[in-house]
């Protein structure tokens, strides 16, 4: 085991610290907020792409992780775009309509995330998991959908809704709807995590479900408290870092599994000699 992989083995253990440090940095100011979310997204994109490579071509799970990586990367691009405007002193789109074009990567990111999570669900269904949802799950998903119309209605007062670019106006209204899809998928992922029972994958799915749910809550909160555009910031930061935590847990699963494979490969004959198993009989 290399020193690097030893550090990687410890990632999930440090997860709460990562989240705390990332969140604290993000709360300093607008630049800190963008930097924190950018860092979480870039790291998540890299991890998701790395996990995707563990799956064979054409597998639903590979597609899922690649789409999630794409969503994270697109989000990072959006943050970089916003950061440029922040440096120029244009922190809202009323001062610079061009800032409204951020809606394009926002929507692209949500579409990629939604498709990725759907592919992940399909993959779990192939193992017979997440096939049957409970009444509570359907009720939660209905509640999420019911939240959307008031949010869409409230957003007509936001700067992007008055953008001179027609596409920005449309996409601005589309983002709450598109955010509701991953949030609904969070309910499914949580159900699957319960069916899994325990293990790193279950933990990863729970972090993921928490991240997606909190992102929706942050959106609702930011829409409800119109006096402060930064009201949902702590939750947004937490959501992005919680998603990163999910990926760290999933990556750790691969690390432990690879370690086991290596050890079984090395000590196979020695193990056989001491097992004492005679044969498999029917």
């Amino acid at each position: 085991m290399t020193p690097l992989s030893k550090v990687r083995a410890q990632w999930p253990g440090f997860t709460p610290w990562w989240i705390a440090i990332g969140s604290a940095a993000g709360l300093l100011n607008s630049a800190g907020f963008l930097a924190s979310v950018f860092f979480a997204n870039i790291w998540s994109a890299w991890l998701a792409a790395d996990i995707a490579r563990e799956h064979g071509r054409g597998q639903a799970m590979r597609r899922a992780w690649m789409l999630i990586a794409l969503g994270m990367l697109t989000n990072a691009v959006r943050i970089t775009y916003e950061f440029g405007f922040l440096l120029a002193g244009h922190i809202d789109s009323s001062l610079s309509p061009m800032l409204g074009l951020r809606q394009i990567p926002i929507v692209a990111s949500l579409v990629a995330m939604g498709l990725g999570l759907h592919a992940m669900w399909s993959s779990f269904r192939s193992l017979g998991l997440g096939v049957k949802l409970r009444k509570l799950d359907w009720a939660l998903m209905a509640a999420i959908i019911l939240l959307i119309p008031p949010v869409v209605w409230s957003r007509r007062g936001l700067n992007d809704a008055r953008s001179p670019f027609e596409i920005v106006r449309y996409l601005q209204f589309a983002s709450p709807v598109l955010l509701a899809i991953p949030a609904s998928m969070a309910v499914v992922l949580y159900r699957i995590s319960r069916e899994l029972g325990e293990g790193f994958m279950a933990l990863a799915l729970r972090w993921m479900a928490a991240a997606l749910g909190i992102r929706l809550v942050a959106l609702v909160l930011a829409t409800a408290i119109t006096e402060s555009s930064t009201a949902g910031n702590p939750l947004v930061i937490f959501a992005h870092w919680a998603f990163l935590a999910a990926l760290l847990c999933r990556r750790h699963l691969s690390h432990v599994t690879s370690c086991l494979v290596e050890q079984y490969s090395i000590s196979g004959p020695a193990l056989l000699a001491t097992l004492g198993w005679k044969k498999i009989q029917h």
Binding site: Q59, A60, M61, S126, Y264
Partner: peptide, 27 residues
């Protein structure tokens, strides 16, 4: 194959490795 599709190649390799350990005793 089933587990590997969801958990990746390392999990598939682990199953094959442990499976081979057990199967080596089959006459």
């Amino acid at each position: 194959e089933g587990v590997g599709a969801v958990y990746g190649v390392p999990a598939q390799l682990l199953i094959e490795r442990v499976g081979a350990l057990v199967a080596a005793e089959v006459e």
